[in-house]
Design a protein around this nucleic acid. Structure first.
Lengths: 233, 233
DNA sequence: GAATAATCATCTGTATACAGATTGGAGTTC
DNA sequence: GAACTCCAATCTGTATACAGATGATTATTC
């Protein structure tokens, strides 16, 4: 997907996907030689990619021992959700101050365009992708690259849990209810932005995310039961 | 300072300091062989450390070209200050909810203990260190590791600019006024936390940081004039 | 004289090799 | 039988070498 994908970039992207999909067992040491042959690259580019993932919070590095998968404990998941609240509430505040009406309307148009997909979509992964796209579009309205970068990183690290969350929700309540509530929150935020009502926009976004935190806390238990199922490759 | 500092950790720490002190010229390519001999390590650990710095936002990496110093433009500095507002306002909110009275009082004690140093200190770097320590102590009260990690990263990347800011302030106004205002904001935040008044604590922290943003915006111009002065080593 | 092409030097990208550290197991001793 | 020690195998940490790419300089041509 990237234009000039060098080997290390390719390895990095592959590893990031593997980490986001939890193909590494929590707290397990990562065997570099095995991984390098599996990915078809030598240890040098592999280790460079691993170091990037350490800095991004996916992995943990212990001197002399190697790289370890960082487990997604309930506490860490709560931390990530709270970090998302921090970032996104400020994002909508900034967007209220400086986003052009036309740019906000463009995000509204995106919601309109994807609404039918939202209702019909069966694939949780596709739903998640659309939701993340909306949030990143809002982040772009803030015109703050730092916050966008941080949010993208948080999303990467939460994706697996959110997926589990979506799947569990799907099982126990009518699909449409949940997605409808989600969509309406998205619209309220945008309308508040157009009205330049930063407090309402920020508060709506906060509750929108915090609601998911409550659901996710329960989903964590389900996640933990799935983490140790041998994954297919 | 670290317990088991391997070579790559040592290189990494050295590079981070160099990046924070802007010993790399903005947008200049980093010569790996030259740096490796300068740091007394080979290119392999050097590149691993450089990759970490890329992930942390210090450097930029272009495939086939190498590593480049990421310039601190006025826009990026504003981004960083806004990110700090996002992180720290949420931190004090969380601290209001869950920090124990004793832990908040411990931070107050820290302020009391360092107040004389604040007044007498001549070294801007020491002032900055004390200020950062206060903010990180407050961050710890939130009990959110993610937000602490993010704030530490933002601090690392803003340190140089804040130093320039402090130096320029020192030049044009009585020292004590500024530090007094700073200290009182710090105390108001802690008192609001003890009263579990999240809105006041959060608002005070916001204004405290935003005020520095305004000063820093001016300091950027000064910084730019200093960046190109050949540095001593 | 200017522009373009070709060559050369330098630097990046990556594989590999080797040394030091660590972990697990086997053997011995109490 | 359990615990401790020692040895071996494996894995990490890093230097180095080499190939491919990039950029600059020079030479050649219009």
């Amino acid at each position: 997907m990237s234009k000039t994908d060098s080997n290390v970039d390719r390895v990095y992207e592959k590893l990031r996907k593997m980490a986001a999909n939890f193909e590494f067992k929590p707290d397990a040491r990562i065997n570099e030689s095995a991984l390098s042959t599996e990915l078809g690259a030598s240890r040098t580019p592999l280790r460079e990619a691993l170091n990037r993932l350490v800095a991004e919070g996916f992995l943990r590095f212990q001197s002399g021992k190697g790289f370890f998968c960082r487990p997604l404990s309930p506490a860490r998941i709560m931390d990530l959700y709270e970090a998302r609240v921090a970032v996104e509430t400020e994002i909508v505040r900034l967007a209220c101050k400086r986003a052009a009406d036309a740019d906000i309307r463009a995000v509204q148009d995106y919601l309109d365009a994807t609404e039918p997909d939202y209702d019909n979509c069966e694939d949780p992964l596709e739903l998640l992708r659309m939701d993340e796209t909306y949030h990143m579009k809002v982040a772009a309205l803030s015109q703050n690259e730092e916050l966008q970068r941080t949010l993208a990183n948080i999303n990467d690290r939460m994706r697996y849990i959110r997926l589990i969350d979506l799947k569990s929700l799907r099982g126990k309540s009518p699909v449409s209810n949940h997605e409808k509530a989600q969509l309406s929150a998205h619209r309220i935020v945008l309308n508040a932005m157009l009205a330049r009502d930063a407090d309402t926009a920020s508060r709506t976004m906060r509750h929108h995310i915090e609601r998911r935190l409550e659901e996710a806390t329960e989903a964590v238990r389900i996640a933990y039961s799935q983490l140790y199922v041998p994954g297919d490759d």
